[in-house]
Each structure stands twice: as C-alpha cells, then as structure tokens.
Simulated scan of single mutants.
Amino acid sequence: MLRFSVLGALQIRTDAGPADVSGGLQRTLVQTLLVSEGRPVSGESLAEEMWGETVPDNQANALQAHVSRLRRRLRALEPDRPASRVTMHPAGYQLCVEEGELDAAEFVRAVRQAESASARDAARTARLLGESLAMWRGPAFGGTPGGPLCQLAGARYEEYRMRAMELRFDAELRLGHHAAILAELAETHSHHPLRERFCEQLMIALYCSGRQVDALDVFRRMSRHLDDELGIQPSPSLRKVETAILSHDPALIGAPRIPTPLQPV
C-alpha cells in the first residue's frame, strides 16, 4: 500500500518510509493525476499542467515517456501489485488511488463528517479535526501547485482547511475551552484578518474569558480593516456577536454559530 500526500510538498510513502519522486515534471504529473480523484485526465490537461505554454512539439510522445517512467517508479515501490497503478483510457490517463491512500481525500472526508457531527459531539469533533489538521505539513503541493487543475484543487483544499479550523474552534468553545484556545485564535485571526468567522470566535473566547473590553476592541479593529481593505461593513453575523457581547447574552457561552457546510465540488 502506498500513501500519497499533497497537504504539503508532494510525498509518497511506503511501509518502509518516504519514496522520492525526482524531477519537477514527474512531480507535476503525479499531483495532477492525484487531484483528479480517480477520474481520467486528458493528455491535453496533463500537458498544460506540466509545460504550460511551452508544450514540446512532440507533446504526446513526451507525455507518454513521463507516464512510462512513473509506471516504472510505482512498480518498483510495489513489486507485488498485480496491475499498474497508471492506466490509459479513451478519456486520458488515470492513477488508481484506493481509500485511505491520499491525505487530501481523507482530510476532506473528516471535515464533512465534522460538519454533520459537530453539534452533537463537540469532544469527538475537536479530536477528529485536531488530528486531521495535523496532516498538513505546509501549503498544498508545497506552495507550488503548477497549472490550473492543481491551483483549483489547492484552493479547494485550503478552503476545507479554513472550515476545519472554524469547526474545531466552535467545538472547543462549546467545551468551555475559551482561555485555552485564545492564543491560537488570536494568531489565526491575525493570519486571516478578513475571515469574519475567526474574528467572531476570538470575540466569543475573549468575552467568555472575562475580557469584554478586549472582545469589543477586536470588533472595532475588524470593522476598520473591512472598511479600509474592502470598503464594506461587518456582516450581520459579526454585528450580532457584538450585540450579544454588549447585552451579555448567555447564549454566547457554549453555543457558537455553526457555519453552512461546504458543498462537494
């Protein structure tokens, strides 16, 4: 069994440890086949990912050579596998990845599970998402996603990462861990200053930790930032948190808002 990781620089692992995939074009080929999630990828799309606007004149032969090289490399890592992982179909090339072998697919599955379970079992949700977020070793594809298919996939995985962080913070707030996550929430908000949900959660954590003045100061700074950067006012949800803090709404403690689940892509 191989394990493929794209939540960070591309990595392939065997039971014996990591296995190298040498060459930028080979790495791009593997990444593109992985993000298709088992669907064939056309030769034209693969060529665009690998070479961009500098596609070689013998594109089909060059691509076939890289695919053959990848087949040999994967075969060497799994000598007992009965069939090649990379197959060719009328629609293009396909990389067989089984359940549990791709970290990004496992991560997305965990986030979707948490979206449906978070309101019922905060402790399980916090634990599940904490473990899942630990799968990230850096930006998807190591911050070099290549062409449009991988760029789109990278943005999608990053959005799931943001949602996982939101859901985990919500679960921790439900569990009453307001003070314990304050520093992490403040750092997360500073790294994503325009994402209002992190601001809401930081305000709630501060208020529930007895720091109402600081919570309201976060709202004022966020309002100025939204106005300066985007020319917009705080959302109704963010204003609602401010109002709840000003009125000492008891619903703030243990009842954070649940975001709308992401729609499958």
Rank of each mutant, 00 (worst) to 15 (best):
G17T: 04
L70W: 06
V55F: 10
A126F: 04
S237P: 07
L102R: 03
R239G: 12
L216G: 14
T188Q: 15
Q31D: 07
S45N: 10
F4G: 01
R161S: 04
R137T: 01
E166D: 13
A76E: 09
D80W: 01
L185G: 13
D121F: 09
H248S: 15
L167C: 00
A164S: 12
A140H: 02
A117V: 12
E196W: 13
A65S: 15
M88E: 02
E99R: 14
T54I: 06
L74C: 08
G24E: 02
S68F: 08
G154L: 01
Y157T: 07
N61R: 14
R257V: 11
L29I: 08
R13M: 10
P79F: 13
Q94E: 00
V241A: 08
A215C: 12
S209W: 05
S209C: 06
G176A: 08
R137S: 07
R239F: 05
Q64G: 14
P82R: 14
A114D: 07
A123Y: 00
C150N: 14
R127A: 06
R156I: 02
E184T: 13
H66M: 12
G143Y: 04
H66D: 11
Q59K: 14
Q94I: 00
T188K: 14
E187K: 14
E37Y: 09
H177E: 11
H66W: 09
T144H: 08
W51A: 01
L182I: 05
R39N: 08
T144N: 13
L182T: 10
A255G: 03
V21L: 06
L230G: 00
A123E: 01
A65K: 11
M203S: 07
R85C: 07
L182A: 12
S209T: 08
I204D: 02
E37W: 00
S45T: 15
A9G: 12
P261A: 06
R156P: 02
A9H: 10
R73K: 08
C96E: 11
D15T: 05
M222N: 15
A122V: 11
S118Y: 02
T144L: 09
R220S: 15
A134L: 06
A122H: 11
L7V: 14
L230E: 09
